[in-house]
Amino acid sequence: MIADFLQYDFIRNAAFVGLMIGFLAPLLGVFIVVRRQALIADALSHITLAGIAASLLISKQIGAFKMLNPVYLGMAFSVTGSVLIERLRKEYKHYQELAIPIILSVGIGLSVVFISLANGFNTDLFNYLFGSIIAVDSSDVWMVLSILVVVTIAIVLFYKELFLLSFDEDQAQVAGIRSRFIQFLFMVMVALVIAASMRIVGILLVSSLITLPVAASIRIAKGFKQTIWIAILFGETAVITGLFTAYYFDLAPGGTIVLLSALILIIVITWKKYRYAFQRSKEA
């Protein structure tokens, strides 16, 4: 059954990309969630959509532009969006969360304008919204692979700084950490990972792959490193079983992956409750 699953190129591509984003999204997700910025992923994914819509619009006008993977322009938009979020957070020191709805709505606004300018698109856009297995080609694999390498190296190199910054910004400053630089670097990484994850889970569901595995992991893990590893384990489980299920039952992979992540979350919460009750009854 698995051999059957892997005999097609497009499925192999999707499986590779899936494995990579199943690792990347929860990895960054842990840092995002503990800083209570879970919605940033949503804001950035919507601005990515604007970039993709722009790219599709341009390629409709200029044939040569079709050669370029729309994800690249999406990525550029997303990185710009991340910089803007940081600027807005500085501007509204006491209402930092405002940056998220501002960028999110601008993202949707731009997307809708681009889409209407192009008089609508074909199924392409639908794939970007909800994810697709068929749409993944080998250029996507290479792109996601380079993002994986860059982001993983950056996380390993700046783990201390990112961890400290997430826990306590004042202390980070006292420790002499260049917090603005690290924060900028981190936002760029988030932007890249969102663009990378989009092919499979789709723009509207990217943030769930970033937050759901972390939400489950944080309930049971001891310590920060363990939270990361368990989140990755959950992320990979959801992506792999999700792709498999989506292929056999002809479902949208994004939705399937998200529902499986939610299922893992429910199992974890229930197990935790049950175990707690069990311990209590034993003590009584």
């Binding site: 201390k160 961890f163 997430s166 826990f167 306590d168 004042d170 944080i218 001891k222 310590g223 363990q226």
Partner: peptide, 26 residues
């Protein structure tokens, strides 16, 4: 040791070991 130290995010998943290590990062 800041005032904030006692109003920190107590749901933060870090062990005592990890929290104390942070003091060495600088």
């Amino acid at each position: 040791v800041s005032q904030k130290a006692n109003s920190f995010n107590s749901g933060f998943p870090a062990t005592v070991f990890e929290v104390v290590s942070m003091g060495l990062f600088g």
